[in-house]
């Protein structure tokens, strides 16, 4: 990891435009979750937990702050910025890993702030209605929060490492595949549910292998309580994170960054 890039990137994330947009989103999400926590049913608590520790916040925040194509708060062009960085002999993998770790740290910070705000709001609302706010923080939530952050940030680092036109195609393809999965299967928990005899086993295995590349999230509750082989889910998750980082490094290595290109 490169310390200079880490500090510079972190400083860039705290730009006022990011902070302004982030605060609005943060408040909106916290109010929603805080209200959900005060409604005393298992379903609302679970909805608040999914909202706080599920994939939504990691993918939103990481895409907002990491991807220069989407939100470059300093109005710099992608190539110009990277040309400056790579005028120094910095290894591309080091840049990718640093971006990933910086992004993950920032997302975890936002998530922590979000959880604290939600608890604060639920305590205030709970005091009005004499309701004990529901606790959504448990071991599963913490593991899911950290792993979802690392997974989705790796995906966004990979997407943002590409030139803008390719990145747009990959994002659209990803969105389409996720939509297809959500529409047909519902959640990523389908991964270890495909031992079906009615369809060809070859097709099943290949489809599972291919589609699982797009499943970045991690559901620790599903993995721990599954009657099936949980090691497959863990391997798929780890493999995806390393795959995205390797692909990002590969793309960055093949791209050329010169001032003359800008």
């Amino acid at each position: 990891m490169n310390k200079a890039i880490f500090l510079f990137t972190m400083k860039r994330y705290f730009h006022w435009v990011n902070l302004a947009v982030g605060t609005i989103l943060l408040l909106f999400c916290s109010i929603t979750c805080g209200m959900l926590q005060t409604v005393d049913t298992p379903l609302t608590k679970e909805a608040a937990r999914s909202f706080l520790f599920g994939p939504l916040i990691p993918i939103m925040v990481s895409y907002l702050v990491i991807s220069p194509q989407v939100a470059n708060s300093q109005r710099r062009k992608d190539g110009e910025y990277l040309s400056l960085i790579f005028s120094r002999p910095i290894e591309r993998w080091s840049y990718v890993v640093t971006k990933w770790l910086t992004g993950s740290t920032f997302v975890l910070l936002v998530m922590t702030l979000q959880v604290a705000l939600s608890y604060g709001i639920s305590c205030i609302v709970g005091a009005f209605f004499s309701v004990q706010p529901g606790n959504v923080l448990d071991g599963y939530a913490i593991i899911d929060g950290i792993l979802n952050t690392l997974g989705f940030t790796a995906l966004v680092v990979f997407i943002s490492s590409m030139p803008q036109r390719y990145a747009a195609i990959v994002v659209l393809l990803y969105a389409y595949i996720i939509f297809l999965l959500s529409f047909t299967v519902g959640t990523a928990s389908y991964l270890d549910s495909l031992s079906i005899e009615q369809v060809s086993k070859n097709m099943t295995a290949i489809a599972q292998l291919l589609f699982s590349i797009f499943c970045v999230g991690f559901d620790s509750y599903h993995v721990v309580n599954s009657s099936n082989l949980p090691v497959a889910n863990v391997l798929i998750y780890m493999s995806n994170v390393v795959l995205y980082l390797t692909l990002a490094t590969l793309v960055m290595s093949y791209r050329e960054f010169f001032y003359a290109n800008d």
Partner: peptide, 11 residues
């Protein structure tokens, strides 16, 4: 390893 786990689980 991931491919092995998937194929082991299937077959």
């Amino acid at each position: 390893m991931r491919a092995s786990a998937v194929f082991y689980g299937t077959y």
